[in-house]
Nucleic acid binder design. Structure first.
Lengths: 199, 199, 199, 199
DNA sequence: AATGAATGAGCGTTCATTCAT
DNA sequence: TATGAATGAACGCTCATTCAT
């Protein structure tokens, strides 16, 4: 059921081969650049590192904000995909915590970027919303599975789970280079997610 | 105890009365402006809102980064001060959690600012480090007190406590406008800070 | 008489049928686009509206200026043609004034375009000059006919007639939407063209 | 009555001496530059020729359009002023025709600029409208005086007079370098403005 | 021959910082 | 000393033109 039977919807044009390559490279480079330097990094820097002219960036993404959004979407999609994969491979509890680690441990710079993205008004457009919903759905499935298994407190819902993810990422970013502290900080969150002990 | 007995270290000049007033107002205004508009807000905007010329800002703070750092220092000092006050008024456990809430609930925009500050390379200079150490000292006292009282897990140290503060602030910022979710998210952190139940 | 007996001069290549169609469509579209949006309109816009690739435009017209010039030439040729037709149908006086109206009343935007064209350095190339000469010839015939008929002041020559046309077009463009004023403005020019009353 | 008793209205701040000089120079230079190269001339070019940094231009005129509008206003004001002066010195008929010549003979490039300004959407703001009204008032006085004196056709109103001015300027611009033709073209307009001969 | 992706110079505009008043 | 005008590097973005498919 995970194999997608993409029906032949025409869509917004079947990009030429080289253009597709450039677009993909741009997204990759942009993610790296924004992660390293924050969203204030110049579009020119992205172009330079992708070895394309500045106009090529703007051909693919009509504004800088569109580029940021595209990077965000890509990341959301990757995470949702990963979540689905993990769920297929193991039980929901393991999958949930594995995904949690994946998100939270992604090189801090990546999270810095994600955070900044959220910070900025980036009124996520329809596409980003859609990607967000997909991730939301996966998280929902993982969460309720883990709750049924008694591994996670029952009162938790997806919105705060996401917030906890974001916050934990931030937390660990702050402890980059101090693995012992990071481990303890993570234990705090992990234990807090457990169902509270009766009594 | 609040009256500071500034010892007669020569220091960086004994600022004239009006200049001191200007400096104070600038810091206040700057914090508000950066909170509202992010650290990208223009220095001119700060000057305008403080009713001083732009050059006056640069006389007091030679670069924009210096201004940002000064705001950060002020905030750190205020928090340390607050911590000391709370400790004087109640037991360490109550004081710790009260300070936690104070920091974490400060209007999200302020945290956005703090976060951005941390994000940016702002290699906190000596002064900021000093203010940080003061806060660190207070937190240390509060933490060990609360640990002795059995209210907080024993393995926690100050660095991760700070990181948890930052992360939680971020978390709650993400849940601004969703108080029920925010309450649950906070419960997660709070419970995670408790000593783990003996199994 | 309208069927052109193009003599077999080698000329600039005998364009394939579809290419000829493309070229014609491009000119038509370009005139419309430049009329609507001014000569600053982008070449891409022309291509888009003509349903051709941008490169096709540049294949037919090696620079944007060449395209503008081609549009101008087309317009000059049409006017000359129209003048010849009018002269064949009626006396020179009627024909002259009819052509005058035709030129001058062409939708203001078209004149805006023509004016802009003239404004810009567009050092009309040889082809444009040729088209200009053709129009010049027709106007000359009309003018001298009308002068012989006593309908137009004798001292007038073609160069100033053209200037008067351009100026009047500009004048009426300025009065677009104010028909009463436009009528009075035109009366001024019309009366000024008449032979001055003796006495 | 012409001596203005400017009351001490505070206005939008009493510009510093050097700033005033710069502002004036910028307007002068901008008029020249836009006249020579059209309104498409770059703001940088204006700055360069005025020997100021680009930011100085934008400090004085927050957008390029504002600069264009300021130049237009200045021109309108100069013309109105000139009209008033002429009227004070001689009868309305002489004054009207003198002003006519002044406007129409201004170096063609200036008219090219004025025309372009009008062409562009330049939705003249309030200030420009005001300046326009002032000129309108002067022209109205001149026109009705000349009409009463029997020197100009009675049916003419100010709007078309302005249009005729614009059109004539365009006309003469087109004949730059051909004085004989220009003289004849102007005679056409001049004669057309006269009251039509009875009979 | 036709396409459209890629290019880079150039534009309008902003902002931290310096300088003249 | 405080002011605010001046500065120029940098940014996001556009467009005529070229190149690979």
């Amino acid at each position: 059921m995970t194999t997608e039977q993409t029906p032949p919807v025409p869509g917004p044009k079947p990009l030429r081969a080289d253009a597709r390559r450039n677009r993909a490279r741009l997204l990759e480079v942009a993610e790296a650049v924004f992660a390293e330097q924050g969203t204030g990094a110049s579009t020119e820097e992205v172009a330079r590192r992708a070895n394309v002219g500045i106009a090529t960036v703007f051909r693919h993404f009509p504004t800088k904000e569109a580029l940021l959004e595209a990077v965000l979407i890509r990341r959301l999609e990757q995470l949702a995909e990963e979540g689905r994969r993990l769920l297929a491979e193991s039980g929901p509890t393991e999958a949930l915590f594995a995904l949690f680690d994946l998100i939270v441990e992604a090189s801090p710079v990546k999270n810095a970027f994600a955070a900044a993205l959220a910070d900025a008004g980036v009124d996520v457009g329809a596409a980003a919303a859609e990607a967000g919903h997909a991730l939301h759905a996966v998280l929902s499935e993982l969460l309720s599975g883990a709750q049924r298994a008694g591994a996670v407190r029952k009162d938790l819902e997806v919105p705060e789970l996401i917030a906890i993810l974001v916050g934990t990422a931030r937390m660990l970013e702050h402890l980059d280079g101090h693995p012992a502290s990071a481990a303890r900080a993570r234990a705090v969150v992990r234990d807090g997610l457990r169902p509270p002990v009766a009594g």
